[in-house]
Design a protein around this nucleic acid. Structure first.
Length: 344
DNA sequence: AAAGCGGGGGT
DNA sequence: ACCCCAGCTTT
């Protein structure tokens, strides 16, 4: 454990806050969740932004808020429709948890996002980061909101070499933030550090010449920006091979629903079998799709076949298919099948 | 503490 | 090819 007192010896806390917040208020990007700011909008944006880039989130956020502008509209909606608005965004447990949490806020807290930390942090899908982000950004409470940006900025600012891949390291940065943050400007502080990490203090080639807190930065002073933060890397993703079946009869296509737990829970797809586990596919080979997850790589061979592989299929016409939620891997397969259909 | 969980963009 | 992103839950 590192010595906080030592870290802050001769460190100008006031200068950091002053420069950061002045910079943030001058340079901050115009983002949808910074308009008509309220706790619900902040919360939705923070969940969408988990492990997901701002540019990816923006169109999803706008569509989502247009359809579910309030706690009440989201709480009243069917899960299937809500999940459909998340299609393509990934980490689908986020939206199932958010929907359940919002329903709880509607029923238990009368539709008001709880301001008490011990209540908010117990909601589904709300972890340490989201707790700090919502309480600080929406309610201006002096809580740390430590994400990858914050760990990168702080590791450089203070020369902290702890491995940010380890869960316990986040707590160190929370202590640093608690000590550094001007409690009167919690919202601007947290958003400002993240904005700095996203736009200036980037993982590769940080733009130190543009940095408002260059003067107080350990990494800049010692020219070690490129070795911070320290992060151990994970092993390579495993490879899995599948056969997918495109079966179309009288304008309807066979689909199966994935199990309600695990990878892509509950989502719809063509019948899919792990290669080599069943009998040889008897059909026309249409091509291969590659799909990369963070921990798995899928190679899927697509076949057009005439026979039913399993009795668990559901036959969907085009409009029925539209309402189902599918993974991007499935979208790639359908594109392949669609291109093939035109040649028939 | 480690693994599971999506997808995309930057270098 | 590798990195990593406004992380949380389960094991």
């Amino acid at each position: 454990m590192l010595n906080l007192d030592k870290l802050f010896t001769n460190y100008n806390i006031h200068q950091f806050n002053e420069e950061l917040i002045t910079w943030f208020n001058r340079e901050k990007r115009d983002l949808p969740w910074r308009h008509a700011k309220n706790p619900y909008r902040v919360w939705v944006s923070e969940v969408m932004l988990q492990q997901t880039r701002v540019d990816t989130v923006i169109p999803y956020y706008n569509r989502f808020m247009e359809r579910f502008p309030t706690i009440e509209t989201l709480a009243a909606a069917e899960t299937d429709e809500v999940v459909k608005y998340w299609e393509g965004l990934g980490y689908y447990s986020r939206i199932r948890n958010l929907h359940e949490a919002v329903k709880e806020v509607a029923s238990v807290y009368d539709g008001v996002v709880p301001e008490e930390k011990e209540r908010f942090e117990k909601l589904k899908g709300v972890g340490p980061y989201t707790t700090g982000a919502v309480l600080s950004i929406a309610y201006n409470q002096p809580e740390p909101a430590v994400d990858g940006n914050v760990m990168r900025v702080m590791s450089r600012q203070f020369g902290i070499y702890d491995d940010i891949a380890l869960p316990k390291t986040r707590k160190i940065f929370e202590q640093v933030v608690r000590r550094l943050m001007d409690p009167a400007h919690a919202s601007d502080f947290n958003e400002g550090v993240m904005e700095l990490g996203a736009t200036v203090c980037t993982p590769k080639n940080p733009m130190c010449s543009l940095c408002p807190v260059q003067e107080t930065c350990y990494a800049f002073a010692h020219n070690v920006q490129d070795e911070l933060p320290v992060k151990t890397k994970k092993g390579a993703a495993r490879v899995e091979m599948y056969d997918a079946l495109w079966i179309e009869k009288k304008g309807k296509v066979a689909y199966v629903q994935r199990p309600d737990k695990g990878l892509l829970a509950g989502m719809w797809q063509y019948p899919l079998t792990e290669r080599g586990t069943g009998e040889q596919v008897n059909g026309t080979y249409l091509g291969q799709v590659k799909h990369v997850f963070s921990h798995i790589v899928w190679y899927i061979d697509l076949y057009r076949v005439d026979t039913l592989p399993t009795d668990n299929v559901v036959w969907l016409d085009a409009s029925e298919r539209e309402t189902k939620t599918v993974s991007v891997a499935q979208q790639k397969l359908e594109r392949l099948a669609g291109g093939e259909r035109e040649t028939i």
